[in-house]
Amino acid sequence: MSAAATTPLIETRSLVKKFGSFTALNGVSLRVYSGEVHALLGDNGAGKSTLIKILSGVFPPTSGEITVEGKVVSFASPRNATDAGIGTVYQDLALNPLTSVTRNFFLGRELTRFKSPFGLLKMNEMHEIAMQEMKKIGITISDPEQAVGTMSGGQRQTLAIARAIYFGAKVLILDEPTSALGQKQQMEVLKTIRRVQQLGNIAIILITHNEIHARLIADRFTFLSLGEVIGEGTAKDLEGDDIKRLMAGGAKIGDLAKELAV
């Protein structure tokens, strides 16, 4: 485990999140290194969403701490998390389908001639950057004025990822990036993730419940069940059967198979 010698890009220590009397996360510790894809797996209700919401600053943890590059951070808002270098690509991608690629790429962070909401947009420069950044992770778009609604699911995913990286994400959180896509589109997205991984300086947290995808691309795995980590390790550490068992929340897959066979 040579990577463990270096400082993790992002690390959580014993994160606990309670909603009233309900414990959503019960002491989750996680280490993600740069240049790695860290798959976060677990069944519905395992606490994946709660964990990424804490990491992206939507709400604070009840206890526990988060460090980015060794420094303890706390986020009061999603903006804080973005500023600290955590870029989250949600399932809905936070895109406005009715406007152009460029307008979406720079949404909320438009380049203007002077610093004011009424500053004129530097449209040409923005077009160029948007095209370039998307090309870097593998998608060439023919027209930056194209409405996002006319793009394929894979293209949209790439747009959202390129945007997060361009605006300084060192940690990229991908929430179920392949869930709503067709087979071919899923492969496109995985290729995109691979290219981001190859950039080398970005840590990717991949939330999924598709273990096939996770196994194709992830370097490291963490399994959540009922708000706790029930298993972790590198790709080598885990055998295929293990992943299946852990995915199902620790139930013995063999038992399940037996039950079904009856």
Binding site: T82, N96, P97, S116
Partner: peptide
């Protein structure tokens, strides 16, 4: 059509959650 505020107006009406998530 030409300013940041305009993009904010479009996105606020086009996809409110996306606009919020992007800090609009």
């Amino acid at each position: 059509s030409k300013t940041q505020a305009g993009n904010w107006i479009y996105s606020t009406g086009g996809n409110l959650n996306a606009a919020k998530a992007n800090g609009v």
